[in-house]
């Protein structure tokens, strides 16, 4: 990318598809053939990846660390679940409504969130998440409270594909949505708007000085990230046909940060790779050792920090150019 002087050319160059990206997406189809009995896991990985990409937009690109991102995920999940419970089980529209509800809440809370930084930001997002969790717990007449929301009945996807026990429909659906989300996020981060976010991340005070309103842009990206998180949540509600308070929990927000940092922040695919690595490792380890698996997860996290300080993708990125130079 060195040598590209014109910013528009730079962005256009970034927009082009690299062969490795194409290969990556083709590889995402492999579970259908290679491990067809792992599709329920694969679809939950895809959903977590959507959620992680949404966090990456605010954390990796705009520098807003949130410890309450599950609020939007859970809101999307409950919205989609409640619509289906009320009798409208069409998946695609449910997905959009779930995303819209989360986006609206994201827009409203965005006014508070962009005012603060550092620890206060982390704690305020955490507070918003915990408050919403308590609201959902308290409103058990609506949400089913601790027992979870039951009676979520989905219609077949596009009128013809039932959500089956093997998870074929669920994975195909989740993967298609993940693809669409990454596509949209890709355009976004490689647009002038995306560049301005990175500029805000690097130096927030300077941006208003050169005529770019920092807070308004941060609110916009926060709303977009909340919408995507809501879509992820709605997808989880639809593919599992169940919503619980766990969708809103602090643990989910915290785990998401872990996933994103493992994969690598600010790299678009970091969340996707992190979701795959973390959830596959978790599934394998807890299958082998149900009681002490988190010991090994803990070691894995420490190993990532010590040996791959920029996450897995960061590690790969330092390897790849070297290889190409050598050849």
């Amino acid at each position: 990318m060195a040598g590209v002087a014109d910013p528009h050319q730079y962005l256009a160059a970034k927009q082009r598809w690299a062969p490795i990206e194409v290969a990556f997406w083709l590889a995402m189809l492999l579970p259908f053939v290679l491990v067809p009995t792992y599709l329920p896991l694969a679809s939950q990985i895809a959903i977590t990846a959507i959620f992680a990409v949404s966090l990456d937009l605010i954390l990796g690109y705009a520098g807003l660390v949130s410890l309450g991102h599950a609020a939007y995920f859970g809101l999307g999940a409950y919205t989609a679940g409640l619509i289906a419970k009320a009798g409208w089980g069409e998946p695609f529209s449910g997905l959009l409504i779930g995303g819209a509800a989360a986006g609206l809440f994201g827009h409203l809370t965005g006014y508070i969130v962009v005012r603060v930084r550092h620890l206060a930001l982390i704690m305020i997002t955490l507070g918003i998440g915990l408050l919403l969790y308590e609201v959902a717990n308290r409103a058990s007449w609506l949400t089913g409270g601790n027992d979870g929301l039951q009676g979520v009945a989905m219609w077949p996807l596009f009128g013809s594909f039932d959500f089956d026990l093997y998870g074929y429909t669920a994975y195909a659906y989740s993967l298609a949505v993940l693809f669409a989300v990454v596509l949209a996020a890709r355009r976004l981060v490689h647009s002038p708007f995306g560049l301005s976010l990175r500029a805000i991340r690097e130096n927030e005070r300077r941006m208003p000085a050169i005529g770019a309103p920092s807070r308004a842009r941060l609110r916009t990206i926060y709303t977009i990230a909340a919408t995507i998180a809501g879509i992820g949540g709605a997808l989880l509600a639809q593919t599992t046909q169940f919503v619980s308070l766990g969708a809103l929990s602090f643990e989910r927000s915290a785990e998401l940060i872990v996933i994103l940092v493992i994969g690598g922040t600010g790299r678009l695919y970091g969340g996707v790779v992190g979701a795959i690595v973390y959830m596959v490792a978790r599934d394998r380890l807890s299958g082998m050792n149900p009681q002490y698996w988190y010991f090994w997860i803990g070691l894995m996290l420490i190993g990532v920090v010590l040996f791959l300080p920029n996450g897995i993708l960061g590690g790969l990125a330092t390897l790849l150019p070297r290889r190409s130079r050598a050849s």
């Binding site: 872990v258 940092v261 803990g298 070691l299 894995m300 996290l301 420490i302 920090v305």
Partner: peptide, 10 residues
Amino acid sequence: VLLTIGLAFI
């Protein structure tokens, strides 16, 4: 955060 959460898990 990642390192210390890892340690907490352990």
